[in-house]
Amino acid sequence: MNAVKRQKNRKVLLMGKSGAGKSSMRAVVFSNYVAKDVRRLGATIDVEHSNIKFMGNLMLNLWDCGGQDGFVENYLTHQRTHVFSSVAVLIFVFDIESREFMADIQNYYNIIQALEECSPTAKIFCLIHKMDLVQARLRIQLLDERVELIKAQSRGFAETMEFYATSIWDQSLYKAWTQIIYYLIPNAHTIEEMLKQLAEVIDARELILYERTTCLMVTKVTRSEKENPYHDRFERISSILKTHKQSMAKHTGIPAGSANFAELQIKAAGFMFFITRLTENTNLAVCIPPAEHIFNTARLNIELSKASFASLDVASRKRPVEGSVAGSSSTGDLDRA
């Protein structure tokens, strides 16, 4: 266990045409913005970097690349290797409302070529964004159409890439980002194994481990024999907890970055549920059968297991907890919320 653990830096490019909504989603997911406040964001100049530390040894290195033509031109020429080398994931955002879809596709194709050249093993997540602007009953068909057209221009990435319809106004954003994070976490399997053991010990029906700032799920364990019919429950819980964090921040006057609860408990018909802090950057949500003694032993056991989960984290230099999401200087405008 005492081998020197190294932080895994994962470079993630966030690209797409100007106004597609890249910085908006970054602000909502990583900087505690509420959806209606993203209007305050200006266009991104060049690239804004942010570093986000997740459970374990994942350090997300996010490049929010301003999408105005001049900047893109520059990424593709002078900065080509600088931008496109050692990329783990490219998140490409398409604006569903765009009136020049063909131009967007062309722009996309240019970027794909550069990526294939410099980082052929990268994975692409394509987000078809602002879906809230489309009537619910038309969404699936429209998505399918776009997916076809985009795939056709995706060269070697077409097989492995994933598509998500997203909107900052609902949980769809969390669904997409949860998948992205899960793909990037290097030791997800180890974490999952430990969670499984814990779930056995405390007789949990479900455990969800999530990152405290973003409320994005890191991983989960389900033990209940009966299948839970709510397949979207994980992104739903992310979204509701995030909204709630903002609400608490607003009401208490504590900055959203640190308006964390020590515990939330719900005891209701047929189940008990609580959320408690697990490690520096994560909370654990626990669903158990409705019995006071299970509740009490579960809390105790989680308390005892904290140390072993903490050992999965890379010993980080002491920093204030809120600082874990601070970006480099250029993200200054995002940290206001």
């Binding site: 608490m248 504590i254 964390n260 609860f261 020590a262 408990q265 719900i266 005891k267 209701a268 018909a269």
Partner: peptide, 19 residues
């Protein structure tokens, strides 16, 4: 209700205690 008693919930904040 079925099972245990009436629904109950509590939120405790790190910086403020029961809230």
């Amino acid at each position: 209700e079925v099972g245990n008693g009436p629904a109950e919930s509590l939120i405790t904040l790190e910086k403020k205690g029961n809230y």
